[in-house]
């Protein structure tokens, strides 16, 4: 198990946003998380990435309990979170946005940087090469030196993924990666995700697009009001009566 949670709980005042959720994510797998709005999916991600502390339960990553690690520590250990709303650094160019993440694992000392010693130049070149590789994988190599404001929504989405990939994560948390995208763009994202799985990444994806979930996920978890109400293969989930009632709706299940 790459990631495990047990009885993970977080409440705000009287509302249980995430209520005793247990999940296990196998290394190299793609797991989907679905549920109606307000089910606690994003809060669950906040707990995994460290942006919110849980009040009950634990999270184990690579066998270690990580409950108290701050977000940047978790990022360094290999948990990469792609947020729902792309938030690139507007004041940095596309390639610089990627370089920020690459800097984490390859950062020369202050002394070297200030005096511009040769090892600085070497590490900068290495990182640039890696950044271009990543952007190439995402079909963004033509806009290296553009600022995010001149990119389309789709390109900003992909850049967001690129930033996280540059951290060399082992677990990728994708929060609604295809929201607001056209059919063709969704297909491209699907290809990218499958490509990442091939490279050995483990992926947790929150989505509303059932077709996408069915196509790429091996297993799906369904949340409602903070609780896990179902888990299984996409086919099992689609035919689960409780899930149909709460989220999918009768027509959808019978239609496909």
């Amino acid at each position: 198990m790459l990631l495990e949670t047990k009885n993970l709980t977080r409440y705000f005042g009287g509302v249980k946003a995430v209520d005793g959720v247990d999940i296990q994510v196998k290394e190299g797998s793609i797991k989907g998380i679905i549920g109606p709005n307000g089910a606690g999916k994003t809060t669950f991600f906040h707990l995994l990435s460290g942006h919110l502390p849980p009040q009950k339960g634990w999270i184990k990553f690579k066998g270690e309990i990580i409950n108290h690690l701050p977000p940047f520590e978790r990022a360094r250990r290999g948990i990469g979170r792609v947020f729902q709303q792309p938030s690139p650094f507007e004041n940095l160019t596309l390639i610089e946005n990627i370089l920020i993440s690459l800097d984490i694992s390859n950062s020369p000392s202050l002394f070297t940087s200030l005096l511009r010693l040769p090892s600085l130049g070497k590490s900068e070149k290495e990182k640039e090469k890696k950044a271009i590789e990543i952007l190439h994988f995402l079909n963004l190599e033509k806009k290296l030196y553009h600022f995010p404001s001149s990119l389309t929504h789709f390109e900003r989405r992909k850049m967001e993924i690129g930033r996280v990939l540059a951290l060399n994560p082992s677990l990728l948390l994708l929060d609604e990666p295809t929201a607001g995208l056209s059919y063709r763009e969704k297909e491209e994202i699907k290809k990218i995700i499958l490509g990442l799985k091939e490279k050995g990444l483990t992926i947790l994806v929150v989505e509303h697009d059932m077709e996408l979930i069915t196509d790429i996920c091996e297993e799906v978890v369904v949340l409602n009001f903070g609780k896990k109400i179902a888990e299984g293969s996409p086919w099992e989930i689609k035919n689960n009566p409780l899930v149909k009632e709460v989220y999918l709706g009768e027509e959808y299940a019978s239609g496909s």
């Binding site: 940047f72 947020f83 650094f89 920020i100 984490i104």
Partner: peptide
Amino acid sequence: FSLSLLKSPYGRALRSLHAEERIPLSLGVN
């Protein structure tokens, strides 16, 4: 020195601080 700093990874990290804290945090920036 200031120019060196800005052109270096330190400078990039500093510039990322303009955004909301949680974003550079989630990318491993301390």
